[in-house]
């Protein structure tokens, strides 16, 4: 099949979790990162956004909750346009886990950090505590609630970063390079956590085996546009496509042998 299928449907009775159309953006220093990006995610999908370094992945992520606003084009979250009028609502619905947990964990203790988002949304008292505990339990970090984040291991910090976002009960979870700098055990633990969640997941990565393990569908972003959209095993089996966009499977890894991803 032709892997280049960029054809987002524009009318749908159930709104997409995420719908991006015609998105272009340049930084103030003149560097243009996005050149017209189109794609849409159904509710509950787990999708990998693959691409080489400098493809514009992180720039795209920053558009999803309105931190950057489009030069041209639009982003809609659960049918809501990402604009100034809907910013609070959008930021509550889109949870972004950034690449460096040190950037995300800025409060003195884990508990305060996880409470930060829901408290900004107006939660207080017992309700807030319950929300924090639940989020920490989902990532297996409930026992570390009162420790300062910088005393945790890197893998633990990444899990707490996921919890800080889960505590906001988002509609869609966006992870920027979730497997980077993780040792194999932490990597597996994070995969187990992610597969146990029932939210839409957009995972931005160049870790192809991780994408195959977690995401049935993948998009390839290269040169600031989506150049491929399809089932992950098929995309990863297309050697020409991968090579053309500087994506490489680890030595000895075969997407066919690895089998279909767990759904």
């Amino acid at each position: 099949m032709d892997p280049v299928t960029t054809d987002p449907v524009t009318t749908n009775p159930v709104p997409y979790s995420l719908e991006v159309s015609g998105l272009a953006f340049a930084y103030p220093d003149g560097h243009q990162a996005l050149f017209g990006v189109d794609f849409a995610l159904e509710r509950g999908e787990r999708v990998a956004l693959l691409g080489p370094n400098g493809a514009g992945k992180t720039t795209l992520v920053l558009h999803l909750n309105g931190i950057l606003t489009a030069g041209t084009g639009s982003v809609r979250v659960a049918g809501l346009p990402v604009d100034r009028a809907h910013m609070a609502e959008v930021r509550q619905r889109v949870g972004i886990v950034f690449q460096d947990p040190d950037d995300q964990l800025f409060m003195p203790t884990v508990r305060e950090d996880v409470a930060f988002g829901p408290a900004n949304a107006g939660l207080r008292g017992a309700e807030l505590d319950a929300r924090v505990t639940r989020a920490l339990e989902r990532v297996g970090m409930a026992g570390h609630a009162d420790r300062p984040p910088h005393h945790l291991s890197f893998g633990q910090r990444r899990r707490v970063a996921v919890a800080t976002v889960l505590a906001m009960e988002p509609e869609i979870l966006v992870l920027d390079e979730p497997s980077s700098n993780l040792d194999p055990a932490s990597r597996r633990e994070l995969a187990e956590i992610l597969t146990s969640l029932d939210v839409t997941v957009l995972m931005v990565t160049h870790d192809l085996p991780y994408a195959l393990e977690l995401c049935p569908r993948s998009l390839i972003l290269s040169g600031g546009t989506v150049v491929a959209d399809g089932p992950t095993p098929e995309l990863l089996a297309d050697g020409t496509l991968l090579r053309a966009h500087r994506l490489e499977l680890p030595f000895g890894f075969s997407p066919r042998r690895a089998g279909p991803p767990a759904l």
């Binding site: 920053l62 909750n65 931190i67 609070a88 930021r91 509550q92 889109v94 949870g95 972004i96 950034f98 460096d100 040190d102 950037d103 995300q104 800025f106 305060e112 409470a115 930060f116 988002g117 408290a119 900004n120 949304a121 800080t164 976002v165 906001m168």
Partner: peptide, 21 residues
């Protein structure tokens, strides 16, 4: 890093005041 921290904060609904501790 300051900008990234700021992005992480606004992503979780920060508008300039810390939740009361």
């Amino acid at each position: 890093r300051g900008e990234r921290v700021h992005l992480a904060m606004v992503s979780r609904g920060y508008t300039g005041t810390m939740p009361v501790t």
